[in-house]
Design a protein around this nucleic acid. Structure first.
Lengths: 103, 103
DNA sequence: CGGGATCCTGCCTGATACTG
DNA sequence: CAGTATCAGGCAGGATCCCG
């Protein structure tokens, strides 16, 4: 059962990262070059500030993305994917392909 | 935002399949050739009958695995992955690789 | 503008007992 | 053996409101 334990825990960390509500929407938007909180809160349908903040903070703590406050008036915050975050892209693509082939 | 909508919903179906508690453990065990309910309930640490049944039923409804009752005494039930279920394997591997590289 | 603090709700889950 | 039924608990998420 070693292989089982192995695969489960390790793959589970990706699932934990992506299973939260709007997690994929947020990451996809940022992947598409929409880096600002304002864009995300206005364009992700049904999201609310608490959830957006929760996801962004979790992503930041996991090293998936970085947060940068721009010294502008009005204030603006920019989120960029790290290499670790970028590396999620092929996984998301693979999941999308699986859905397209089998659903 | 079309690409965003696209990626989100479609990849989301995989996340929904895998995010349930013990989902990865169950699929990994079956991938490793452990097809029987009895094995799963005895070897997956911390699982209980209700959760195992819930996951197995969900997987079956999604076409991830098939259920076969063996006419034995004592009764025995065998779960096998369908092609659709097998196709999850590379995705789980990719998630595992991501974890190994970045965590 | 970009959040944090609160309160409330529902679903997921845990634990057991029971059955064909 | 392979589940189902039932009940209780906890945590994720929805809805506001407020603040630097």
């Amino acid at each position: 059962m070693e292989l089982l334990e192995d695969k489960k825990c390790l793959a589970g960390s990706v699932i934990n990262t992506l299973k939260g509500k709007f997690a994929l929407e947020i990451l996809s938007a940022i992947l598409d070059g929409h880096l600002h909180y304002g864009y995300l809160i206005r364009n992700i349908d049904g999201i609310n500030p608490r959830i957006l903040a929760t996801r962004l903070r979790a992503f930041e703590e996991e090293g998936i993305l970085s947060r940068k406050v721009l010294p502008l008036i009005p204030p603006q915050v920019e989120y960029r994917l790290t290499d670790k975050g970028m590396a999620l892209y092929p996984i998301i693509e693979a999941m999308r392909d699986w859905h397209l082939e089998y659903n």
